[in-house]
Simulated scan of single mutants.
Amino acid sequence: MRPEDCLAFVLLIGVITLSVLSREVPSLLDSLLGLWPVVVVLGSASVPVYWYGCRHGGGRPHGRRLVRKTAREVAPAVFCLSFYLMLHHLTPDLDRPLLDPRLSSLDRSIFGGDAGVWLQRRVGSDMTTAILTGCYLSVAIVPAAYTALLYLRSHYQHFREVVLAVTTCMLSSYAVYLVSPAVGPHVYRGPVGVNLVSNESHAPALRMIAVIQGDARDAFPSVHAAVVFVILWYMFRTYRKLFWSFLPVGIGVVLATVYLEVHYFIDVVAGAAAAAAGILSATVYARIQGFEPARLAPERARR
Rank of each mutant, 00 (worst) to 15 (best):
L196F: 13
I266M: 02
I288K: 15
G250Y: 13
H62Y: 14
I231N: 02
V142M: 08
L32V: 09
C80I: 14
S31V: 10
R121S: 08
A165W: 08
A75Y: 12
F79Y: 10
R60Y: 08
S173E: 00
G193R: 03
K241T: 15
S27W: 06
P204G: 06
R60N: 05
A256H: 01
L12T: 06
V47G: 13
L81Q: 03
L280T: 06
P191Q: 06
W244I: 00
N199V: 15
V253F: 05
L149C: 09
D107N: 04
P26R: 04
V38M: 07
P185G: 09
S31K: 00
W36G: 11
Y52W: 15
Y177N: 01
F265S: 08
Y84D: 12
L106E: 06
F236P: 08
R121N: 13
L196D: 03
R23F: 15
S198R: 14
D95V: 10
V166P: 14
T17Q: 12
I279K: 08
F236M: 13
L296P: 14
H56R: 05
A130T: 13
A165Q: 06
Y156P: 10
T168G: 05
N199C: 11
V262K: 15
F111S: 00
G184M: 10
S19C: 03
Y84Q: 04
V194K: 01
T147M: 15
Y264P: 12
V262E: 10
K69L: 07
V40M: 08
V162Y: 10
L171S: 07
A216W: 08
S19R: 01
R300F: 14
V39Y: 13
S19L: 02
G134R: 00
R68P: 03
S180P: 13
L85G: 14
S109P: 12
V223L: 04
L35W: 10
L132K: 01
R64Q: 15
L296K: 14
C6T: 14
R217N: 10
A8L: 06
V15I: 06
G214R: 06
T168H: 07
S201H: 11
E299S: 15
V230Q: 01
A77I: 12
V74H: 09
L98Q: 14
V139M: 10
R237E: 07
H158Q: 12
G59M: 09
F229I: 10
G113Q: 09
F83H: 04
R72C: 02
A165S: 06
D100G: 07
Q213D: 14
R207Y: 02
T283H: 12
L90K: 07
T129N: 07
W36D: 12
Y177R: 01
L99A: 07
F220I: 05
M127P: 04
L150K: 04
T257R: 09
D95Q: 11
W244P: 00
G57W: 00
G252M: 00
H263R: 06
V176L: 09
R240D: 01
S19A: 10
V253M: 03
V40P: 08
V183T: 10
L18N: 07
E200P: 08
P92G: 04
S104G: 14
R189P: 02
A225K: 12
R102Y: 01
A148K: 04
A226H: 06
S31T: 05
V179N: 12
P221H: 00
